[in-house]
Design a binder for these strands. Sequence first.
DNA 1: GACCCACAGTGAAACGTTGCAATAGTGGGT
DNA 2: ACCCACTATTGCAACGTTTCACTGTGGGTC
Lengths: 373, 373
Amino acid sequence: MDVTAAGPRRLTIRNVAERAQVSLGTVSNVLNRPEMVAPATRARVRAVMDELGFVRNTAAHQLRMGNSRSVSVVVHDVSNSFFTEAIRGIEDVTNDNGYVVIVSSSDASAEREKRCLRLVEEQRVLGVIITPADKDLGHLVRLQEHGTRVILLDRHGPGGGFCSVAVDDVRGGELAAAHLFSQGHRRIAMVNGPTEIRQCADRRRGVRRAARRAGFDPDTAILDVPVAALSAAGGQGAVARVLAGSPAPTGVVCANDMAAMGVLRGLREAGVRVPDDISVVGYDDIDFAAMLSPSLTSVRQPKYELGASAARLLLEEVSDATHTHREVRFDPELVVRSSSAPASDRTASAKPDSVSTNGTSRSRRTGVSRTGA
Amino acid sequence: MDVTAAGPRRLTIRNVAERAQVSLGTVSNVLNRPEMVAPATRARVRAVMDELGFVRNTAAHQLRMGNSRSVSVVVHDVSNSFFTEAIRGIEDVTNDNGYVVIVSSSDASAEREKRCLRLVEEQRVLGVIITPADKDLGHLVRLQEHGTRVILLDRHGPGGGFCSVAVDDVRGGELAAAHLFSQGHRRIAMVNGPTEIRQCADRRRGVRRAARRAGFDPDTAILDVPVAALSAAGGQGAVARVLAGSPAPTGVVCANDMAAMGVLRGLREAGVRVPDDISVVGYDDIDFAAMLSPSLTSVRQPKYELGASAARLLLEEVSDATHTHREVRFDPELVVRSSSAPASDRTASAKPDSVSTNGTSRSRRTGVSRTGA
DNA sequence: GACCCACAGTGAAACGTTGCAATAGTGGGT
DNA sequence: ACCCACTATTGCAACGTTTCACTGTGGGTC
């Protein structure tokens, strides 16, 4: 039987050993501790590997070592752009370390999430980076107790039980509203989704905080315009309520860009000019925010960095025995474009405090809080 | 030592066996061939598994069985929306069968792709669904010979050496242009990327075919406006050349929606009305096409179905011994919105042949060609 | 020349699962 | 009472890798 014949039969370390006239152990050493095998032997073994096209069998490796060279990512939907950029960040960090990324979508359903986690636990992954579907994190605690490391993505855990990475949504809401207040606006509307959603609640809190810090009473400076869904349709439908506000707001903060697009469209149909008559600020800075007309001022989240940072946290938790769980918080960034301008009914007393005027830089981490293990 | 103590020590089939007072083989049977173990025993073993929280170790399973329960997807960029929707399709199909999806980005670099494939080959995945970075498919042929099944995504292979799934870009270009011709347009511009890119070349061929089928000479009916990059900036920069055409085109087909957005913006700045003065058709039907003003007529690709179909092909190749490679071709779909209208300088002779006026249906597969193994 | 060392390479056991051949158990028929 | 057919269960040998205690083998030292 000719070993060199390329066939579907998988090559093993043993084939390499035979052909290179060494023992199994030596081949393994070439693979894992090359410095301890003589240069000549090492070269010979390597040559045979290339010749045969040998690829190490990870299953056996894993079995022996106890854990696999893969990390798992479980998010609501792998086709959602927020997550895909984060996934790309995770991929870039982990690939450098020879890990492979397994993705699954939970569709924000606790049951689907459980299925994903089971599949993933079978794989004995190094750890799982997850955006939990459920408020209750009990099953994640159990997972961790069984030896699978868990990193929370876009969510902080209770009492430092997990490492986690999230963007500060309160700060984001504050940035958006502070921008408008600093431009001389005195009353603004907030088009927001259901406050049961943590992000929506946080962004609203930020907007109110901005009002207070600007010296206004949130209850009068801010007109809440809740919508059932943060979609373009939802935003468009909210316009009538925004315009009916009394006194009429001169600015609108939207809890995401889709809603902002709807608002822009609704305003255009109503004959209201942006930013001349009213300013609009979005949230997320999706690709198309810059391309709308007027181009949309928006709050950008460091999605890629979020993922990359989660991955780094996971690697750290694996390698560092003295690891204590950390909660990393990222600051979002305001990208000012042409949908926002000084309030029209008065000379703006303050100059715009434009935090960032173009958007190529990736946000840096600004706050790291440390909690006990 | 108390077995029930939840600890980081991983549970094995042996722990279950001891506690349920049966042999290893029986536990294995419960897992893999439950019908051949007596109901009472089966129930007892299952109870112990639940109690202990046993999760089968895939590494050992794989090692024994020879292949893993995972499929790999290698695309240019996992954060690109074309691919993410396809990945979601792959995920949905494979998860149902207990497989897990490993993703990697090649960044369209042959070298990065090779690294990804190596990592993935180590995993002994069931197969890899790949959008090749390179024209040369030699390494994929070798991969296949070594036993990893390969499915091409968004690309067809030469001579039926691979199963593949792709959208018919020629047809897509034809749909876009035929729509305009049927609306009475007689001269249209095509804003296209480099024709070295297969998609760009194909879409151009389709546009020219539409001209011929409408009874025009492609060389006079179509104004080629090449741009270096199919981006919004590229599209915007192309507007001057479109308008300078003589005779002036009354319609523009863009090779993607980003370019179309740029064209729309450029036209607005030039004071040209859409669709009154000129019609614009995009390609891809990205989320935001519907939200632009005017909303963009565009060619939609069945991205989700593309991925799902690739996954099905892979599963079929695995299970069916008599499998012969197939090339599945999907037809794109024209979504007519308000950026296109009958040509203005004449009463349109033909009514719009609106292929589809809203966009909720997923394209169906229309052509399946079969080739030898 | 005996002794010890460092170094290169070896061989076997283990990781957790599966599949198979063998064994024990159970009635039923003769 | 005996054998047979049949099912339920068992025990063991793989799967391919890594680790670790071990064996050779020269060279240097006293």
